[in-house]
């Protein structure tokens, strides 16, 4: 468990940003994973007073505040009406409901953990993150960036008709995944995202496969292109195999007309 000398509930995003420039300060999201580090913080910055806990819908996009919980995304009817079961599938295996009532979207994306279900699925959609200072940039770019001291305030998810499907493989139902895979399609282009490699999720795009052979070819390419590694949960070789299986399953559910 970390220690902290001070706790500040920021009144403005700017205040939060300013505080966060000090090396010994940090933003606390849900706190669920953060508590496992043993750092000694000077000031913890809480964003919960900034109204960043809502899911808003405009004709073009969804805007999710950084403090939206995983459980909110899991149960949100508006997200469901556009993306089907995607947000539910992305969150349902994560520890338990109490955990998901604490853990936040901002914390999940900022951490950019390799095992993140959230990052994998959102990368398959067309998302932008909105940072306090750097402004808006694509989630794909953000996912590759090193950790910095900017603050993730919001996530914009485009409602552009993209359909997505999510698959994950776990040793036990509520464990961290051995491998995650999301697939989405827009205008005949297939996007495949593979996460828990165990490193950060990777995206690839292909023409949407119309034949079984074309799909097999894509799965083979995913297995060849993505670099995999070994850890406690699985070997590199097994992950490579699973990537082929999950990719095919995700694409098949897109073919079967998954709205998500």
């Amino acid at each position: 468990m970390f220690t902290a000398q001070q706790y500040v509930k920021a009144a403005t995003l700017e205040e939060a940003y300013t505080l966060n420039q000090k090396r010994n300060n940090a933003v606390i999201g849900g706190g669920c994973w953060m508590k496992m580090n043993h750092r000694r913080y000077q000031t913890l910055i809480d964003l919960s007073g900034l109204g960043l806990d809502t899911i808003e819908e405009t004709p073009e996009e969804f805007v999710l505040g950084a403090m939206v919980t995983l459980r909110q995304m899991e149960t949100d009817e508006k997200l469901k009406s556009i993306f089907g079961n995607g947000f539910y599938e992305m969150t349902r295996h994560i520890v338990g409901i109490q955990f998901r009532n604490c853990a936040t979207l901002g914390g999940s994306l900022y951490s950019r953990f390799g095992f993140s279900d959230i990052l994998t699925f959102l990368l398959s959609l067309d998302c932008e993150v909105e940072l306090a200072h750097a402004g808006r940039l694509s989630l794909a770019d953000y996912a590759q960036m090193p950790y910095d001291r900017d603050i993730l305030a919001k996530v914009h998810i485009l409602k552009n008709g993209r359909r997505a499907a999510y698959e994950s493989f776990r040793q036990t139902a509520t464990d961290i995944p051995v491998l995650t895979c999301a697939a989405s399609v827009l205008d005949g282009t297939l996007r495949v995202v593979v996460g828990a490699r165990p490193k950060r999720a990777m995206c690839m795009e292909f023409p949407f496969p119309e034949t079984e052979e074309a799909l097999e070819e894509i799965c083979r390419k995913v297995q060849e292109t993505v670099s995999f590694g070994s850890n406690l949960r699985g070997s590199e070789e097994y992950r490579r195999h699973l990537a082929g299986v999950l990719c095919r399953r995700a694409v098949c559910s897109l073919k079967e007309g998954a709205v998500c």
Binding site: K9, C32, L44, D46, I97, Q98, N101, C102
Partner: peptide
């Protein structure tokens, strides 16, 4: 597990400061 404003949360992960 406790309820915070009626919702079940993990009190081990939630700072008392935030419960203000």
């Amino acid at each position: 597990t406790v309820h915070l404003d009626g919702k079940p949360i993990l009190s081990c992960s939630y700072l008392a400061a935030r419960a203000d």
